[in-house]
């Protein structure tokens, strides 16, 4: 089963992402911010990480950078779930090593379609 780490500080967003992914047949682990996600990533293996950008403690961009530094996450697809349509935010994410991004508003079908492409 494909394992996904879903990171968002907003409970409703986390619930929606998790629910959608589980409906799509994926196994989901939730994290409430970047620091939590990093700790969980170090403690397990995931096939994909999907993270919010604006979060307390550790933001999504820093999380991407930290994850890429871990051998187990060198090639793992990491998607940013962001409301920022500003190009420089995406640029920043890309430079940190993010695979791609999904633009909010959150759309379940869009999420599933994108994930299907990324994780086969």
């Amino acid at each position: 089963m494909v394992k996904i780490l879903a990171v968002d500080d907003s409970a409703s967003m986390r619930q929606m992402v998790t629910y959608t992914l589980k409906q799509g047949g994926y196994e989901v682990t939730e994290a409430v911010d970047g620091a939590d996600a990093l700790a969980k990533a170090k403690g397990g293996q995931f096939d994909l990480v999907i993270t919010d950008v604006n979060m307390p403690k550790m933001d999504g961009i820093t999380l991407v950078r930290e994850l890429r530094a871990l051998p187990a996450f060198k090639f793992t697809p990491i998607l940013l779930l962001t409301t920022e349509s500003a190009p420089e935010k995406k640029q920043e994410g890309k430079q940190a090593g993010a695979t791609g991004w999904l633009v909010k508003p959150f759309d379940p079908d869009q999420l599933i379609n994108t994930i299907k492409k990324v994780v086969n």
Partner: peptide, 14 residues
């Protein structure tokens, strides 16, 4: 404060 506004915006859009 920004983050809080940002989260509300994101959720509301959804």
């Amino acid at each position: 404060v920004f983050r809080a506004a940002h989260s509300i915006k994101g959720g509301a859009g959804t």
